[in-house]
């Protein structure tokens, strides 16, 4: 059964999967609040939603300013008149080259991908548990399944996010809250631009469509699109002594 939402919040909505999720939620009738760091990009997405006849509230906010999450969340809930869906789609993946151990980059990934997710989703979970309803969607990644040499801390942040979302699901499902973990494979977004060796690439709009479909179930965790679960199945079973010699 297709779930519909009245009041949705999308964090990380200025591009990629987050943008498309916001657009599709608005198209399905939800009043949408969009949050992202880059104000101009955010305004572009807001215009896109308005032009399609949707209702949108945009808030420029860096997910690393954790102190402002609480008041901003309250403001958004008041503005929307409630909240029944929150999406965390903010994520960064700066390139890390062979031999580079850059703490600043690594820290940014942990702060945006993982700590920001905990800050926002905790706040949304508090709201949803109290109202005994709501859907929380986290856009994690297949990258969280293994610690790969090419993206060490990105994998770490997504593994953390996947574990956190699972814990949140175990915590909140008894209160009627639907926590969804979406683990995309390769998606055609600004994040993957210029990367080599991509395959099975789908558009961000297609990914968003599949993520909302995933959220129609109860407490699902899944790969986007589904065929990436075959890759994950194999990936997880490669023994460590082989994995460390490979270039995956």
């Amino acid at each position: 059964m297709k779930r519909t939402y009245k009041h949705a919040l999308v964090i990380g909505a200025s591009s990629g999967i987050g943008e498309e999720l916001a657009v599709q939620l608005a198209r399905d009738g939800a009043h949408v609040a969009i949050v992202a760091r880059r104000a101009e990009e955010l305004e572009r997405v807001a215009r896109r939603i308005r032009e399609a006849g949707g209702t949108v509230f945009a808030h420029a906010h860096d997910v690393r300013s954790y102190e402002s999450v609480d008041p901003l969340f309250d403001r958004i809930v008041d503005e929307l008149g409630g909240l029944d869906c929150a999406v965390y789609a903010a994520g960064v993946m700066p390139r890390v080259v062979e031999g580079e151990y850059d703490f600043a980059k690594d820290r940014a990934m942990l702060e945006v991908n993982l700590v920001g997710c905990v800050a926002w989703m905790n706040r949304a979970a508090l709201h949803c548990e109290a109202q005994r309803a709501g859907t929380l969607i986290g856009v994690s990644s297949i990258a969280g399944e293994r610690g790969r040499r090419g993206a060490p801390v990105y994998c770490t942040s997504k593994a953390g996010m996947t574990a956190y979302l699972e814990a949140l699901r175990n915590r909140c499902s008894r209160y009627g809250v639907n926590v969804v973990t979406a683990k995309p494979g390769f998606i055609d977004t600004p994040m993957t631009q210029g990367m080599s060796g991509l395959f099975w690439l789908i558009s961000a709009a297609e990914a968003a469509r599949r993520i909302l479909k995933l959220a129609n179930g109860r407490g699902r965790s899944g790969f986007v699109p589904w065929r990436w679960s075959l890759v994950a199945f194999v990936l997880k079973r490669i023994p460590s002594f082989l994995f460390r010699r490979s270039n995956i």
Binding site: E67, L126, A130, R132
Partner: peptide, 20 residues
């Protein structure tokens, strides 16, 4: 005080709920 941790707080019957 506005920075104090928040939690879900309900009445005993669990029909009246809040966070604070």
């Amino acid at each position: 005080l506005r920075r104090a941790p928040r939690r879900v707080v309900a009445g005993f019957g669990l029909a009246m709920r809040s966070y604070s």
